[in-house]
Nucleic acid binder design. Sequence first.
DNA 1: TTTAGTTTCCGTACATGTACGGAGTAACTT
DNA 2: AAGTTACTCCGTACATGTACGGAAACTAAA
Lengths: 214, 214
Amino acid sequence: MSSIAANRRELQKAELRAELVAAAHALVREEGYEGLTIRKLATRVGYAPMSVYSYFADKHEILMALAEDAFVDLARRMRRNRPDDPLEAVRAALTEYAEFGLGNPNEYRTVFMTEKQKPPVGKTFAEMERGNPAFQVIMERVEACIAAGRMKGDARALATVLWTMAHGAISLLITFPFYPFGDQKAYVMRIGDVALAGLAAGVMPPLTDEPASY
Amino acid sequence: MSSIAANRRELQKAELRAELVAAAHALVREEGYEGLTIRKLATRVGYAPMSVYSYFADKHEILMALAEDAFVDLARRMRRNRPDDPLEAVRAALTEYAEFGLGNPNEYRTVFMTEKQKPPVGKTFAEMERGNPAFQVIMERVEACIAAGRMKGDARALATVLWTMAHGAISLLITFPFYPFGDQKAYVMRIGDVALAGLAAGVMPPLTDEPASY
DNA sequence: TTTAGTTTCCGTACATGTACGGAGTAACTT
DNA sequence: AAGTTACTCCGTACATGTACGGAAACTAAA
């Protein structure tokens, strides 16, 4: 196979895909998240509805493409706000992350609250993590904490725990907007602070397949 | 309005509703969670599809009815397993809760991972909490910890934080079954222990609408 | 008993995601 | 150049949730 032709083909495919994503963005901007339907999207780019499926396996993949754009923004914002104190830097990252989730519930839902049943085909673990820039930022700042002697243990495990707990707060706040959690941001930070206090209490071993302890 | 007739009517309505729930249960047992469709359900009880909507506002309400049954079971199981040590009792409750979530992902999703946009009409806060028996158990055991001097602060707030963190772990494990969290139950317990350690570190104020701290 | 109102149930219809198979076209192989 | 393969795009069709309006049955009031 000529790789030149293959590249050209892939390039065109990528271009069309990008056009579809742009149209999807426009649709969402104009009609809201549930205004995005395959048919409308296809009409807008001049295709038949089923043609969209040449570029996306299903609707969820389109929503994921939209959300990924938003998450790239998030990572940028997270990096922009970096206090000098390493612990405060972690707190700031969590804050920014929470603010994003609460402000973009649709994107947050499609990425973190709908089942991914694909065993990460072709994607290595490293690639998966590179694909989650927000997690990257958290982990980098955790590493800085470790270097500064403010945390002890495996950086990935520590970051994963922090992420998990922040996610718990964000997803509950999204799911139950009427439950009396108090001020939303304050609640997320409360969770973050309890998490940090808990982490400070011990050494965090890495996340291997440890035996169940109960 | 004759309250006798009204009662009879309501009774019949409740009976039919229960019949629908039973049929829904059967359908799920036979064909799996996504085998439950309004049409099949209606056919099974001899109705037209739209008649189902006299008893449930939408499909989600049916799924909630199914899930509530499962959650009642959960609370029973949680209460059955109560270690003497109050902290261990909390841990056991969280463990049971996690096991339930991981073992009944469909039910867990419909209750805790899909948006509730109804402002709890007619339901007081107390009623909402009574409607979540699992949370009740956790809170009771937290109260026991406070009484024993093992925790400090507002019981509802403490329980809410524990619930939030466990939920973070459970929901991520459900959403990303292929992400390398390690052993699932072990991961949930790790989260639980970090949470407990974090709670032990300070006094937890109640959940009022405190001002954002950042 | 008649009347008015309410509730139950249904027929029809629509928008949606997507499965399936086919037709046309471009790329690759020989 | 010819044949084969692979990809793009489409038409059609189906299952699904549910909106809408009407008919029928039941209840309450007169």
